[in-house]
Simulated assay, not measured.
Amino acid sequence: MHGKAASLHDGPLRLFHLSDIHFGLEDRRALDWAKACIEREKPHAVAITGDLTMRARHPEFRAACAWITALDVPVTVEVGNHDIPYFNLYERFFAPYKRFKAIERLVESQLDLPNLAIVPLRTTTRAQYQRFPWSNGWVTDHALDQTLAAIDALPAGTRVLVAAHHPLTERRADGKLLTINGTRTMEVLAGRKVLGILSGHVHDPFDLTEQTPAGPLRMIGAGTLSLRIRSTPPSFNEIIIAGDSVQVKARNLEKVPTPAMQIDAVPENALPPRQPQEPVAPVATVPPVDPPVH
């Protein structure tokens, strides 16, 4: 049951928003729990906002694709910076999505639900001449044009969520820790009156509103289902949409309340918040070191 959901539905819509599952350093207990929640509760759709793998290796992709194809609900998948080959430069530059073949119909796919569309926005790139490493976000003009064209093609009155991997906030002007073109992208999406933009990358959930010259833009971030935790335990977002109301709950095995799970600012990168000025959720379970990647 992947792709578009055309069934009639008059009540609230429930979405599960997952991100950064990182097969290769996955948290098996958290993944089994999330899958059981999906099987039992049957949300109207699942949006996965990137980083399916840790190092884009073939075994990691096979495991990630097997897990995703077993979900019996409509699914859309964004590409994260960890999902583009690290070690095979030919594939990185000339066939970056080759390893998604088992789920290619889900990758950057628009989901059409009753009076709601989830529209993809690509924020990953094969290379960035402005900076190295190439892990941060960049909304190219082409990617933004594709997203805006998809939004503008929707029937009048359709509610819209945009799904991306990187949060769009631009934090620094030194060319190192930005989502390039993020500020302009937020403004034009706010001008299209989208309900919000779903993202991941920083491994802690958040629910923030950015003020732009075109109006406010809701930014909703999901945590991780991997061992690479930051300041919160593994989690996913449950999103309830009723009319233009969007309610977000950060669900987690430890049953930490949502306000204690969410960080109050988007960090500059996806590293653990180990400096005093970096955003930390109230639960503040920052690990001393990241688990090793083999």
Rank of each mutant, 00 (worst) to 15 (best):
G191H: 01
W138F: 13
S199I: 00
P155I: 14
T53N: 07
N237A: 07
F132E: 07
Y90V: 14
F61P: 02
A265V: 05
R28T: 14
L227E: 13
A117W: 04
S226Y: 13
E39M: 03
R192L: 11
A95L: 10
R131T: 13
T169C: 05
R274Q: 14
V188G: 13
C65E: 08
L52W: 02
N81H: 14
V293N: 08
N136Y: 15
P282K: 05
V188L: 09
K255C: 09
A222I: 01
V280C: 10
D51E: 08
P12D: 13
L195V: 05
S245I: 06
L178Q: 15
K176M: 10
E26Q: 15
L121P: 05
K249A: 09
F94M: 11
E91C: 04
R40C: 05
H9W: 09
P287Q: 03
R99I: 02
A156E: 15
V139W: 00
S235L: 06
L189W: 01
H166M: 03
Y129L: 08
E108S: 14
R274A: 02
P205D: 12
D204F: 00
T53C: 14
M54D: 08
D244P: 00
L116R: 13
V107K: 07
V160R: 12
L13A: 11
R29F: 01
D244L: 01
P12R: 15
V139C: 14
A47F: 03
R122Q: 09
I84Y: 10
G80F: 02
K176Y: 05
V162Y: 04
W138S: 08
I48G: 06
F93P: 02
M261V: 07
A45K: 02
Y97P: 02
I68V: 14
P282I: 14
T123Q: 09
E187I: 01
R57G: 09
R218C: 07
T69H: 00
D141C: 07
V280H: 04
V246A: 10
D290H: 03
Q277T: 12
R251V: 13
L121W: 05
L198T: 03
P291M: 09
Q110D: 00
T209E: 15
I48P: 03
N237D: 08
N181A: 06
A6F: 12
D152C: 13
P292I: 15
D112N: 15
L15C: 05
E26C: 08
L225P: 11
R126Y: 06
P279A: 15
S226G: 12
K249N: 10
H201Y: 01
L121A: 08
T140G: 09
R274D: 11
P85L: 11
E108N: 14
T125L: 03
E268R: 15
T212E: 05
L8F: 07
T258E: 04
E108P: 02
A164H: 06
G137H: 04
V280T: 15
I84H: 07
F94R: 02
A164I: 03
V139Y: 00
Y86T: 00
A47W: 01
D32V: 11
I151C: 13
R228K: 07
F23P: 06
